[in-house]
Design a protein around this nucleic acid. Structure first.
Lengths: 206, 206
DNA sequence: GTCTATACGCTGATAGAC
DNA sequence: GTCTATCAGCGTATAGAC
């Protein structure tokens, strides 16, 4: 269940209200252009509460970072748990990322668009986080089983997901008008025609 | 000729010294974590000079943004001017970006890694800038001439350059140890096997 | 636990001497 | 043109009442 956008359990818990407001502001204005006072006003709580719950501005960013990564991680796990080929798993992840980009763009923007190392001290870069590691493992598995062409794992993962990430970036930047799911089929088609092992003309590997 | 990293004409011009220092600090610490005083110390000039030349912090960022985009633009133009197929042009651009990432990583980091809209007021997102538009036009041309598979132009460009951009990001984030040029061949190979129009088995188009 | 009022450092920016 | 000294405002964080 999405943590931040769930239907409010009547009096929405305070910490959730704070984080929702913070996320919105961070994404729209950029972390450094948002003051604690801004969050306070947006969330309609007092400064005291913010410091009580999260210890300050960076605390909010850390909490957001953590919870959204957990959510992303669960998403990846749920895809892996399904009975799909590796290629189908990759596609499903892209499909879900595209859906998220339309319906909950703030989460995607915060996770993919932000330079967390700039404002969270001692935070490793996002692509070294667990869900992204799992995705690379998934690609490696696909290469081991012969589903995916054998390349360096990082290169393969970059090619498979690079196009999707670029489209997400451009969509978030307002360069693309259409909802990303409409572009999904073409993207998948274009991407895999290179990653799937081609059957040599005249040679059957049935 | 690279503006920022050219061999110093003896007493390196003041504005250049300032921008070089600013670029280094902005990239390493993030724009918002750098004060004008920091730049002043790093460049070994006075605050007054900085305000005289650039009008302030945002002025430095704007100047950097502009000059580095011009440089990137010239790079793209020089590739287009050469007598190459479209696919070779795309490859050459990727090759040059990879070289830049190793030898002048600050430029790449500032252009590709930073969220300029967060600190330069009224700046359109970087991917709508001239050189990036030219790259998309190049891709479109490749599709018109039948060199590149026909897809939506943005999708095609994303697939062709998405892998390269991802690798650059990961390299800048320290996730990749090897110099990017070493990965070039594999990346190109993996990318194009899907974008090049395949010869159908049994059908010759010689 | 929640709030308000306040403190204080830092940062961007300026004024005016040289 | 270059520099130093100084300002004014903002933004984080705290103290203490309720």
């Amino acid at each position: 269940m999405p943590y931040l956008s769930r239907p409010e359990p009547d009096p929405k818990p305070m910490d959730c209200r704070i984080l929702t407001a913070a996320l919105k502001l961070f994404v729209n204005q950029g972390y450094h252009n948002v003051s604690v006072h801004d969050v306070q006003k947006q969330a309609d709580v007092s400064i005291g509460s913010i410091y009580k719950h999260f210890g300050g501005k960076e605390g909010m960013a850390k909490a957001l970072h953590e919870r959204l990564l957990v959510e992303m991680n669960e998403m990846v796990d749920s895809v892996i748990a399904q009975d799909l080929t590796i290629i189908e798993q990759c596609n499903r992840i892209i499909e879900l990322l595209f859906e998220y980009t339309e319906t909950r763009c703030e989460i995607i923007a915060f996770i993919l668009h932000a330079n967390h190392t700039e404002f969270i001290s001692d935070e490793p870069p996002i692509c070294s986080a667990e869900p992204f590691q799992k995705i690379r493992d998934m690609v490696q598995r696909g290469m081991d089983t012969g589903e995916i062409q054998a390349y360096d794992c990082l290169i393969a993962a970059s090619v498979i997901f690079g196009g999707a990430f670029r489209l997400i970036h451009m969509r978030l930047d307002g360069l693309i008008d259409r909802p990303l799911p409409e572009l999904y089929e073409q993207l998948i088609d274009a991407t895999w025609r290179g990653m799937k092992i081609q059957v040599e003309p005249g040679v059957s590997n049935k």
